[in-house]
Design a protein around this nucleic acid. Structure first.
Lengths: 346, 346
DNA sequence: ATGAAAGCGCTAACAA
DNA sequence: TTGTTAGCGCTTTCAT
């Protein structure tokens, strides 16, 4: 009898309903029933089971349970764009909401949009009841598989053309048109657009809308459409380049607030440009910093909370009733005007 | 034969290994083996299985598998303090790292430290292989249960006195002492401490260390220890109050960068205080904004990346080998001096 | 290398 | 209300 023998015992098998049943002097079904809300058990049996359970430290195995009832109470969340300043809210709010409704979030990161499919496949192996995909879209083939296996899915920040998934976006084109109208009204005429990855759909939509809207105005033009420019440092550099160009802008519209704040600091502190007299700056997102005393940035307030609500509600509904069809939701953004643009002419 | 009958079919049962086996003309064991890395299958069988599988769109059920092999490849992450500006990095980096190592993160939010136990219990029902707890600590009873069931756990930002869990913290007291020495050397003498919740351990440690260190200096004193003050707006208000007080500070040390930036804006823009001549401001965190041209804030750079690495490595090691004992890790923070304090006297 | 059989921990008919 | 029985989809001895 050497001490070695005990080393064998690695993962001590957690306590099962069998053991609880035995200690309580009842059947496994009785144990199962006491832990199933709304099942019929007599108060006496329930008490016996409960005391035996707490005595042994019993905790029902959710995996075994899910195998039977064919529901995991698991929702997969694929996060593609961690640069998005809102992923943080998105994550927190989804987490709190679904938790409150009795679901757990299974989190997957996908660095590029390409490995979204991989991430989703991994989630599907864990039999998630539903899927939340932020700033990305699965391949049509995978989307079809999900639809076929009746796994509801909602896309955030992406539209689903085939309508097999629900999706939540905001009205980017309208925002683009509104910004242009605002700038024209405030007597700005030479617009520079500064955005990140040229392929990001929301950027494309907003940009086209702005270009189109400018085309309809007199003496006004888009002097630059800079892509690949995202974040504070990039913005600060971008305004330096733009200001030196043959056709400098009198208004810069950025695809993110940090970029816009960089433009603002670059303009005022590095180049001595007077904002908003010589230059207007507009951001996107309305992050807290935008309203700080040093900046007072005009920007687009995205309806993040509303989008999250729309997405969560849609998924929860379809989780509860799979006869509900997926649909497309659009939330409304709104422009917040602060001191980085001139006030309205009287 | 009414159309009604088909409505019955709700969750279409996903394809099982049984069906794959049948189509491939082999046994279920063969299917299982082709999907188990390192199992012995002939190339011929493997091919038959693989083609049948892709034909049917077969995906092994991770739940059923976990039930047998007693490993889920699931790691539970409990996030208690979403105010922490780093939870964002923490989440992303943990997610990427564990994903790379073949684990999935099961995310749980706990609003208060009180429901950490609830969150953990829910995670345990899903048979997570390990636990990551950020800015919170489970009750001793629950910690004991985890230890007993051999579920490794690591605490971030909290120390585990009983040593049943691993923990990762940074040397808060040392940072406090360093800050005081720096301020004294730069000829500041009247220190105000501004922090959030008075009960947060790291704040307590740093504050005591600062008070103690100040006590050992001549003509120097702590003029205020403001608690319940967190974030930009709170900071901006706090400096207004402090400046009006009978004993105004010449240096303010904040428990977060946003707070410090609020103090900075309040001091310079609202009150016309000259920084750093009349007032020094020091933050905590070294968020990107701290280095922006409008602020140039001196702050404490927390070793977030290092802490994340320490935590992830510890957990992964203990996941792979449960004979490894939990331990306590300490990472080193460092002060970043920018223009919000005077330069060193010559 | 392969298949048959046993079972992981649980729930859901079905009888009693 | 209760226990008995039959699986959920998978892996794993154990023979062959």
């Amino acid at each position: 009898m050497s001490a070695k023998e005990t080393v064998e015992a690695r993962k001590p098998t957690r306590v099962t309903s069998e053991e609880v049943a035995e200690l309580a002097g009842v059947s496994r079904s009785a144990v199962s029933r006491t832990f199933t809300p709304g099942a019929s058990v007599s108060a006496k049996t329930r008490d016996k089971v409960l005391s035996a359970a707490s005595q042994l430290g019993y905790r029902p195995n959710a995996l075994a349970r899910s195998l039977i009832i064919r529901r995991t109470q698991l929702v997969g969340l694929v996060m593609a764009e961690w640069e998005n300043p809102f992923y943080t809210d998105i994550l927190r709010q989804f987490s709190e909401r679904f938790q409150r409704e009795g679901y757990q979030l299974l989190l997957m990161t996908s660095v590029t949009e390409a490995d979204v499919d991989d991430a989703m496949r991994r989630l599907l192996q864990y039999q998630v009841d539903g899927l939340l995909v932020v700033s990305a879209r699965p391949s049509p083939a995978l989307a079809r598989e999900c639809a076929a296996s009746n796994t509801p899915m909602v896309l955030m920040n992406r539209h689903s053309p085939d309508g097999m998934e629900s999706s939540v976006t905001c009205d980017n084109a309208q925002v683009g048109r509104d910004i242009v109208q605002l700038l024209l009204q405030r007597r700005y005429r030479r617009l520079a657009i500064v955005r990140g990855d040229a392929r990001v759909l929301v950027g494309v939509q907003r940009t086209s809308a702005m270009i189109e809207e400018m085309a309809g105005a007199d003496n006004a033009k888009v002097v630059a459409d800079v892509t690949g420019c995202l974040g504070y440092q990039a913005g600060r550099q971008a305004i330096a380049d733009l200001w030196r160009s043959p056709d400098p802008p009198d208004a810069v519209v950025c695809s993110s607030d940090p970029t816009a704040l960089g433009v603002l600091d670059g303009a005022r502190l590095d180049l001595g440009i007077r904002v908003p007299d010589e230059l207007a700056v507009i951001g996107l997102g309305d992050i807290p910093e935008a309203s700080w005393a040093s900046y007072r940035l005009s920007t687009v307030h995205l309806p993040v909370d509303e989008m999250i609500d729309l997405a969560a509600n849609d998924l929860l509904k379809r989780l509860a009733d799979d006869s509900i069809e997926p649909r497309h939701w659009v939330a409304n953004a709104r422009i917040v005007t602060r001191e980085s643009i001139r006030s309205a002419p009287t």
